[in-house]
Write a protein that binds this DNA or RNA. Structure first.
Length: 592
DNA sequence: GCCGTTTTCGGCCCGACTGTTTTCAGTCG
């Protein structure tokens, strides 16, 4: 049997946590499963393989008991306790607990006292007014259940999954709103909070924290924006609105001396804040959005800035991108610790190694892309159109590539300020071969290889396919390794750990594709790759001049979430330093 | 069920909101 993937293991832990919760287990046990699910989901290595090696308890949050369950899952495909509890509680019960406002305690009572075991029977019971007679339930409960079921059905009919927005769409809403609020005469400080501030892949809604002389006036300014479709509430504390694109926006106007506490609290992540607070409690300090309560003095310290919040708790300032409880608290301890990295910034980027032109599916000519790159101050730009098997009418035959090489070299001569690399984004075929002859690949200045077809082959085959490309002497880098499209398409099955090992061994670079719906490598993989010594690239994959600039910040955000410094990203180097890092630079050219 | 610069046992973040309550449990973020 094939090993379960990390996401399958995580799903099994989440399910078991839910089942234990229904079964009435103490909440800390349930939380332990949910925490373990998250650790597994974020792990950069195969948890099944770690389990086989007897090393899985090295992961934080996995102890002896969970190890036993993992062994069962890996060896038999299921966890016995989960099978037992599934027999005890109908599947519909878990579905019921996903309704907002209905949790495990009350779902279980509905099941035991009324026999309600699905959304359908819940709806029926509510309509028949049988729920209101239960102790602790009332008429309102029936109304709320019916409304929640109706909303869930409507969302399902609309094809809404989680209602999450890819970050670029979210920022396209957030940025004009921030501008509007900052320009308002009554406002002083206006900051984006929440997962958008942490540059997460996607966000559910927007949180904005502000201070103002006239809070209500600022709140009303938000509600008056023409982006706003409806107003859920407005007052002295702020406003809650929904935009025409369906994005919820929550503005909180707070006292200036608590701005730091509230911004820190609402920036999250939940995991970061929980770990922060837990550590604080051990020192007699209690952190909330309103301040830091000191047991010793009984005083609550209010902080106007986040820097003060972290300093009060004994930490250096932690950049929002790092606040995921992935070791940042330990690193930020002011007394000792290894220290936080100096994170890469957008302005560190000196070149781009992945771009398209009209030769394949891009919208601009070589010269237009060169001008756009120069405008960004770049020293080099690789033109990497798709290769011979790309299809969709966007393929570039070997003969066409020969012409394209000439055109790029001619353009290079015409643009003395920038190095234009004749490159290609070569398809990695299902068998691991490339779709140009080696002699042609050898004549290029740069080759990035990517998977664009046959996504559904199994993990072993996909891994061997990509490793074969990594071992190819003319492949300088691998593009968008996992093929994911955020909120649209899951990554394909591939053993990233083995890919990283092969890339480190051969000196092949791995790309963080900066397209906002890709960001692939993701943060966890990029961090693991850099730690293994792999050189990382942040590439736009631009298909037009505009995205050469506009995508970059999403790639940099992923690099920062991966704890990367400028040093660890190869294209922060000038051309003279970058050129010899290409794999081909150290390779003897084959004859011919 | 995990974990250890007060612990190998006894802790395990903090507050808001809701609906059903006469002081709180459940749920959520």
């Amino acid at each position: 049997m094939a090993d379960p993937t990390n996401s399958e293991i995580a799903a099994a832990f989440d399910e078991l946590g839910d089942l234990y919760e229904l079964d009435g287990a103490i909440i800390h046990r349930v939380v332990a499963y949910r925490n373990a699910a998250k650790v597994v989901r974020d792990a950069s290595v195969s948890v099944a393989a770690l389990t086989r090696d007897g090393r899985v308890t090295e992961l934080p949050g996995i102890g002896a008991t969970l190890e036993t369950k993992l062994v069962a899952l890996v060896e038999t495909g299921d966890i016995p306790q989960a099978a037992r509890l599934r027999a005890k509680f109908p599947a519909g019960l878990l579905e019921m607990t996903r309704l907002p406002g209905l949790g495990p305690k009350r779902a279980r009572r509905l099941y035991e006292e009324l026999g309600v075991d699905s959304l359908q029977s819940l709806e029926t019971a509510a309509r028949q007014q049988r729920i209101r007679d239960l102790k602790g339930f009332g008429v309102r409960a029936e109304e709320n259940f019916l409304a929640a079921i109706a909303r869930a059905n409507a969302d399902a009919a609309d094809g809404k999954t989680g209602g999450r927005f890819v970050l670029d769409r979210a920022l396209a809403i957030a940025e004009p709103l921030l501008e509007l609020l900052r320009a308002h005469p009554t406002s002083h400080r206006v900051e984006l909070a929440g997962s958008a501030r942490r540059w997460a892949d996607s966000v559910k809604d927007l949180d904005i924290i502000a201070t103002a002389d006239d809070p209500r006036a600022l709140a009303e300014a938000l509600t008056a924006s023409d982006l706003v479709e409806s107003i859920a509430g407005v007052g002295d504390a702020g406003a809650r609105v929904r935009t025409h694109s369906g994005m919820g926006v929550d503005l909180k106007v707070v006292a200036p001396d608590q701005f730091g506490n509230l911004l820190q609290h609402f920036s999250g992540s939940k995991e970061h804040n929980m770990a922060l607070r837990e550590a604080a409690v051990k020192r007699g300090l209690h952190v909330s959005e309103y301040g830091v309560l000191d047991d010793a003095t009984g005083e609550t310290l209010r902080c106007a800035t986040e820097q003060e919040v972290y300093a009060e708790l004994g930490y250096a300032y932690i950049e929002p991108e790092l606040r995921e409880n992935r070791g940042e608290l330990r690193a930020a301890l002011l007394d000792g610790g290894s220290g936080l990295p100096e994170l890469i910034r957008e302005e560190d980027v000196r070149g781009d190694l992945h771009s398209h032109t009209t030769a394949s599916d891009g919208r601009n000519e070589i010269e237009e892309m060169a001008e756009a790159a120069q405008a960004l101050g770049y020293e080099y730009l690789a033109i990497t159109d798709h290769s011979a098997s790309h299809g969709f009418g966007d393929e570039v035959s070997a003969e066409q590539l020969e012409i394209q090489i000439e055109r790029i070299h001619a353009a290079n001569a015409a643009f003395p300020g920038i190095e234009l690399l004749a490159g290609s984004e070569v398809n990695i075929m299902p068998d691991g071969s490339l779709d140009y002859p080696d002699e042609l690949l050898a004549r290029l200045d740069w080759v990035i290889a990517s998977v664009h077809s046959s996504f559904r082959i199994d993990e072993r085959a996909m891994t061997e396919r990509v490793v074969a490309a990594i071992e190819h002497p003319w492949v300088d880098a691998i593009g968008h390794l996992t093929g994911r499209k955020i909120e649209a398409r899951p990554p394909y099955a591939i053993d990233v750990e083995r890919v990283i090992e092969a890339a480190a061994r051969t000196g092949t670079m791995l790309e963080i594709n900066a397209a906002p719906d890709r960001r692939d490598l993701n943060d966890v993989h990029a961090r693991a790759a850099a730690q293994a010594g792999v050189r990382i690239l942040v590439n736009s994959d631009a298909h037009r001049t505009r995205t050469l600039a506009s995508s970059r910040r999403y790639g940099i955000a992923t690099a920062r979430r991966a704890w990367l410094t400028a040093e660890q990203v190869a294209n922060t180097r000038g051309w003279a330093q970058f050129a010899p890092l290409r794999k081909r630079a150290g390779t003897v050219s084959p004859p011919g």
